[in-house]
């Protein structure tokens, strides 16, 4: 009895060890642990620590100082402007993204790959250049500068310029989230709806939209995160007029340069929370999107 008890638990452990060492698809234990160790250390130092720093700095003088910093009129106006700009650019890119995805995913036409490359273009342009192009168009020395000045229309160093630059930077997000999804879903359900007598709009709202809603939300989410957090492009077109054309990321910079670290990191912490919420929602949406794939038995 006692002997049996001693013997039985040992055998499976040894088999497992041996099989792990001899598995054709893995490495020796020491190498495995080193790789995991390097990966975890690298990510902790370069990614996790900076995030932790934001919150510790923001709360370094206590929660009172933190809240006071956020209640500053300058902070409030930056938050308002950021929300407004994000709403405008996300709204515009939502409509554009839906239209572009419908045209690209549901139809065949020559030059489709090239069109997708053009849609992607803003991703590969430096944020500063994204702002610069609008300065060249609408600035005092720009192509439309004199014309705008004569009519007293303010685009640069005003909300329209900030919204334009943000729209440029966030241009590809919604379309890029939708195109692969809609291509994969094909056109059969839409064809079925049309053959059953549905109009184009009925087909879109009753068949297409329900099928792409998670993908659409995914695109909007990423678009919004970038819109709220954009710094370089907005910095070039904003003019940094206090209380008027400073978005939250710009205010982070200004306060930081004025050595108001708690205030700067307090605003930064809001943006960091936005990033974290975005990531959590993104993970949830990604699992939703995977569930949404209906297996076809063919």
């Amino acid at each position: 009895m006692a002997q049996l008890d001693l013997i039985t638990p040992v055998a499976p452990v040894r088999i497992r060890e041996i099989s792990a060492e001899h598995d054709a698809r893995t490495e020796p234990r020491l190498i495995r642990l080193s790789i995991i160790g390097i990966a975890v250390t690298f990510l902790s130092i370069f990614v996790v620590l900076p995030l932790v720093v934001v919150f510790t700095q923001a709360f370094s003088r206590g929660i009172g100082a933190y809240l006071a910093a956020l209640a500053e009129p300058e902070a409030l106006s930056a938050i308002k402007l950021t929300l407004l700009v994000a709403a405008i650019s996300v709204g515009l890119n939502l409509i554009f993204g839906l239209a572009a995805a419908w045209a690209v995913a549901k139809f065949d036409f020559p030059g489709k790959t090239f069109l997708i490359t053009l849609i992607d273009l803003p991703f590969s342009v430096s944020p500063v250049i994204s702002g610069l192009v609008f300065v060249l168009l609408f600035g005092a020395q720009g192509f439309f500068g004199a014309w705008l000045q004569a009519r007293d229309i303010h685009i640069l160093f005003a909300v329209p310029g900030i919204a334009l630059a943000t729209t440029f930077v966030t241009f590809p997000f919604v379309a890029r989230a939708l195109i692969p999804l809609m291509q994969e879903q094909g056109t059969q359900e839409e064809e079925a709806a049309l053959s059953l007598g549905a109009s184009g709009l009925q087909t879109f709202f009753r068949v297409t939209l329900p099928n792409i809603k998670w993908g659409l939300l995914y695109g909007v989410l990423l678009c919004n995160a970038r819109a709220m957090g954009e710094f370089g492009a907005v910095s070039v077109v904003s003019g940094h007029i206090r209380g008027e054309t400073n978005t939250m990321p710009l205010l982070v910079e200004i306060l930081y340069n004025e050595y108001q670290f708690v205030a700067s990191f307090a605003i930064a912490s809001l943006l960091a929370m936005l990033a974290l919420v975005t990531l959590v929602m993104k993970t949830i949406l990604e699992s939703r999107l995977q569930e949404g794939q209906v297996p076809r038995d063919d």
Binding site: A192, S195, G197, A198, D298
Partner: peptide, 27 residues
């Protein structure tokens, strides 16, 4: 297609995946 009153049954059925059977038929 919608004005021809033609019933079309697709090879892979093209059922609306977000609607239940009743709503599919009622569409």
């Amino acid at each position: 297609a919608g004005e021809r009153h033609v019933g079309f049954v697709f090879q892979h059925y093209a059922l609306f995946r977000h609607m239940n059977v009743f709503e599919n038929v009622a569409f």
